[in-house]
Nucleic acid binder design. Structure first.
Lengths: 115, 115
DNA sequence: TGCGCATATAAGTATATGCCTATATACTAA
DNA sequence: TTAGTATATAGGCATATACTTATATGCGCA
């Protein structure tokens, strides 16, 4: 069994800085259970689409999340290949499940499911 | 066995924001192994004393670290009673040990040990 | 008391962050 | 091609952050 490489302070602090924003942390907690697209986050956070897009971009830029286009939508998910993925998971598992946001979305008929 | 209370998003993001700074994260990683005083951090980070003092204050203000006066010095340590203590520990354990900073300090004869 | 060391606070400044509106790009479907 | 929807980018603005220097406070000891 190979010893686990420690995460550098630089990389960890960059990841933690992004996690240190309430909006992004909530997004990440949601993504821990379900993939989401930008327009769902816009509904959930009641925030402008460009704001959401910028939060998402920052997380994508450091490899924390990844995107996959599905037709018109781009679905975002946690990137299991992210170097800080284990740390991220450990943090997210200490946080309350955020399913109520998705349930609201479903009630409003706004949940995207591109099958 | 009582189920562990989840940490609120608000409290977690406040803690993560503080951890998201390279200087503070390194301080915390050091404190995971050894108590330190402000003047030691000043040596280690080669930064002005007020800067260090302000970093320390932010972490103290949210209860992440605690202080104990020992004569002339104030020793800082991780606060085991901090609500996010477990999360903090999990993050810190993913980071490389920072003992080299203390070893440099000892070589320079600047390590404080108030016995 | 008064000096020296450790730490804290105040005030100023440059940069970073997070939001907005306006606009551009990408895809779908008529 | 054109309209409609989803997302990204650009630019601007207000606030937050991280540093600095100057000064105040707290403690130990002669």
């Amino acid at each position: 069994m190979v010893a686990k490489e420690a995460l550098s302070i630089d990389k960890a602090s960059a990841a933690l800085k992004l996690m240190g924003d309430k909006t992004r942390l909530t997004m990440l907690r949601i993504l821990a259970d379900h993939d989401c697209c930008v327009c769902e986050f816009v509904e959930i956070f009641n925030m402008s689409q460009p704001s959401i897009s910028q939060h998402v971009r920052k997380m994508k830029d450091i490899g924390m999340i990844k995107e996959q286009r599905r037709g018109q939508w781009i679905m975002y998910s946690l990137n299991q290949g992210f170097e800080g993925y284990e740390m991220l998971q450990q943090v997210l598992h200490q946080l309350p499940v955020q399913d109520h946001h998705l349930e609201e979305l479903i009630q409003k008929g706004k949940r995207i499911s591109c099958e």
